[in-house]
Design a protein around this nucleic acid. Structure first.
Lengths: 132, 132, 132, 132
DNA sequence: GTGGTCTAGACCACG
DNA sequence: GTGGTCTAGACCACC
């Protein structure tokens, strides 16, 4: 069982539980975690990352609320879908993207460099067949 | 006198002051606010958005810390740069982008649709010449 | 439990939050607060100094922005470095020093007296090994 | 009449009038401006620096309050002393010095480097015989 | 006029 | 428990 590589930044502004959830989402999007895969037990992941139990539990709960995983009593948390259960509205999908792109533009990156970055990230997510 | 269109979501999880700062950053990136432009007075923008004066002041302070804006005591806040004063590192620019893209992938969007979205946003930012 | 001795001048012109930040910086420079040390909770320090909670929060935020301190949500504020994250330029370090020395000269102090003062202050900061 | 070289930073946090006053004090301490010297007229200095009339007037007023200059109706402002009229208390002279030194220490400068800086500034002030 | 600071008090998010 | 955010309202400093 591959140990689910997650990098979290304790000092950052984004809550740890959200960093954990995002990290797992990325693994699902990339196909590292396919449907049927079992997430590490809360205790183990908490120990591995050196964070509180509740933090991991909150992350798993969020993933469940988004319809990506299913919590099975006693037998762990299983990845059950690669699609969010609730559809996102146009503006809700544009906003984070626009914020990220704005930051890149203000950082002085050229349009070509930004597109390269985007394609680079997308290519990673295609290996597992997540993107059509 | 263009009244600086900003849309704020009071119920969202991102702090109001950050929404305001992000909104202004987008205007700067798009070229709606060019170097030399004066931001609306703290109290006026606060009144327009229906929030407290301090909330706007915090937003302006963040923009100043990022080097985009200069506070001239007694005569307002001026846009003085289109580039962040502190360069951001590779991973710091990739992370938010990856998170945004991940969400789009999990929402079921095709690769083509995502690229269209990205180019659409970038095109907006090019009108003001912000992107090379 | 050393209660972090800070002396604040409510009537002075320098903002309280800056006095607090400066005071803590001095403790870090002197080695009273070493890496890993936890700063007193915002509310406690506010109560001790008889000022508002927000005033202390602002001071802590400034220290964090300078990279000396890391905020760990839920478990306090930790001293994580003895060096400013952003290097300061030649003139930015000379200016405050020149202003201070100018005042001493105009106060009529001799060169020898001034050097004694400087060495006296530096000696304090050496006890904790902050100065090489 | 040498045009009184002053460099001010409009974006900085220290008020402009104080930057002007400090700059003039430095010239007095260095001996560039000796007793009997006449400061440039308010209007001229304001024009040279590109700031408001009142700002310069405030600076001159502060210098007068400290006993360094005398405002003579119609005939300008004259440097009348090289010593502050009011003696400074021990702590009032230590505080700004300590703050400046703390910043240098946290910037990572060695003790030797700091002393070199101090002596370099003091040497400048000795040329005019201001320091004994 | 402008922004900056501070207070008192409330509520929320995080771990 | 911790810090973060926001409000309403006041007062001050600067230009």
């Amino acid at each position: 069982m591959s140990n689910l590589l997650l990098t979290i930044d304790l000092s950052g502004k984004t809550p740890i539980y959200e960093q954990v959830a995002n990290g797992i989402k990325e693994h699902i999007a990339r196909g590292d975690l396919k449907e049927g895969a079992i997430l590490p037990p809360v205790r183990q992941l908490a120990a591995d990352l050196g964070v509180n139990l509740n933090t991991i539990a909150t992350a798993y709960r969020q993933l469940q609320a988004e319809g990506l995983v299913t919590v099975k009593h006693g037998s762990g948390v299983e990845v059950t879908s690669r699609k969010l259960s609730q559809p996102i509205e146009e503006e809700q999908m544009r906003a984070p993207l626009r914020t990220a792109l704005t930051q890149l533009v203000l950082a002085g990156l050229t349009r070509a460099r930004i597109l390269t970055l985007v394609e680079s990230e997308l290519k990673d997510m295609m290996k597992g067949g997540a993107v059509r």
